[in-house]
């Protein structure tokens, strides 16, 4: 057991190193140079060279990576080229926003899809099941940014439940205003994923309901509801948990796009801006942060998997 955990932890570290290194490589291959956006296109070659030396961009790739890695361990993420302030400070306020957005999205996915998945399986072929199947198809095929526009149109422009673009004002008004603004972008991220989770949970439960042990449960006089809740659900949740863990990566990635649509000042928005400006230290920090979240969530899912399935515990 301890050995398994250590193995997984090792894998976690290797994954993070690999992802951050690949990000370094990707930006050294991409055309464009941060000195252009800092000095402008009319700078002389001497000025450019001097700045490159100052930023450390004249060093070979592996050395730059090692420097960055060294900084990471001492809590120094570098200075943003564009904003001229420490990356840590720059991101501090925004990380919370994106984390809240992603967290809220994930909670919505769970709250929407688990009960609906159970209901669909319980009343298979019923009105709700058929209606949701159609709705699922629609929601699944709409990308989250388009859903974001539709939600903005409906709730902001038609119903006037919130004012799009008023995120910083809402932040100033206090926690609940802040959270209720985030509710709509979170919904845009959550709905397509919820549709998939409902479909998956429904299928998983119905699959379990055909197993031999379900027949045993019926033979003891259990009602259909009891069989579903006490016997099928736990087994059916095992693959769904894996799916939800993978969803977290999509949720974080989804927030990058959806933050643009709803004008939410999170790291997603910052990432897009910084890529455009070739603001490497910022991009690098955000990539590392997202990778960390994804890897840690998968790690947690693996642990939960073991709790749910006793057959995995002994290994």
């Amino acid at each position: 057991m301890t050995k398994t955990i250590l193995k997984r932890l090792g894998l976690l570290v290797v994954t993070l190193l690999l992802v951050t290194f690949l990000a370094f490589v990707a930006f050294s291959i991409l055309p464009g140079d941060p000195t252009n956006s800092i000095l402008g296109l009319n700078a002389t070659q001497e000025q450019v060279d001097a700045l490159r030396a100052q930023l450390g961009l004249d060093l070979p790739l592996w050395q730059r990576y090692l420097n960055w890695l060294g900084g990471l361990f001492t809590g120094n993420l570098g200075i943003s080229y564009n904003y001229d302030m420490p990356v840590g400070q720059l991101l501090a306020g925004r990380v919370g926003v994106t984390a809240a957005l992603a967290g809220l999205s994930f909670v919505l996915i769970v709250v929407i899809s688990i009960p609906l998945g159970i209901l669909c399986a319980r009343y298979e072929g019923g009105v709700l099941d058929r209606a949701l199947t159609v709705l699922n198809q629609i929601t699944m095929s709409i990308p989250n940014f388009l859903l974001g526009f539709l939600l903005t149109f409906l709730f902001s422009l038609v119903l006037r439940w919130f004012t799009v673009g008023s995120f910083s004002a809402a932040t100033a008004q206090g926690f609940w205003d802040w959270l209720s603004y985030l509710f709509f972008p979170a919904l845009a991220i959550a709905l397509p994923k919820s549709a998939m989770t409902v479909k998956m949970l429904r299928g998983s439960i119905l699959g379990e309901m055909r197993e031999d042990y379900i027949r045993t449960a019926y033979s003891k006089g259990n009602s259909k509801g009891a069989v579903l809740w006490r016997f099928a659900l736990r087994n059916a949740m095992i693959p769904v948990i894996t799916f939800l863990a993978m969803t977290i990566a999509d949720v974080v990635a989804g927030s990058i796009v959806v933050e643009q649509v709803f004008a939410v000042q999170g790291i997603g928005q910052m990432l897009v801006t910084s890529i455009g400006n070739r603001d490497y230290p910022v991009v690098q920090a955000i990539v590392a942060f997202i990778a960390l979240i994804v890897v840690v969530c998968n790690f947690a899912a693996d642990g939960l998997y073991r709790v749910m399935d006793p057959r995995l515990r002994q290994r």
Binding site: D212, R215, T216, A217, K220, R234, D309, P310, R311
Partner: peptide, 16 residues
């Protein structure tokens, strides 16, 4: 009235 089945490997709930 009770029953036992042919498949003792699969007739029990694996997570209970």
């Amino acid at each position: 009235l009770s029953i036992i089945f042919q498949e003792p490997m699969t007739s029990l709930n694996p997570t209970m």
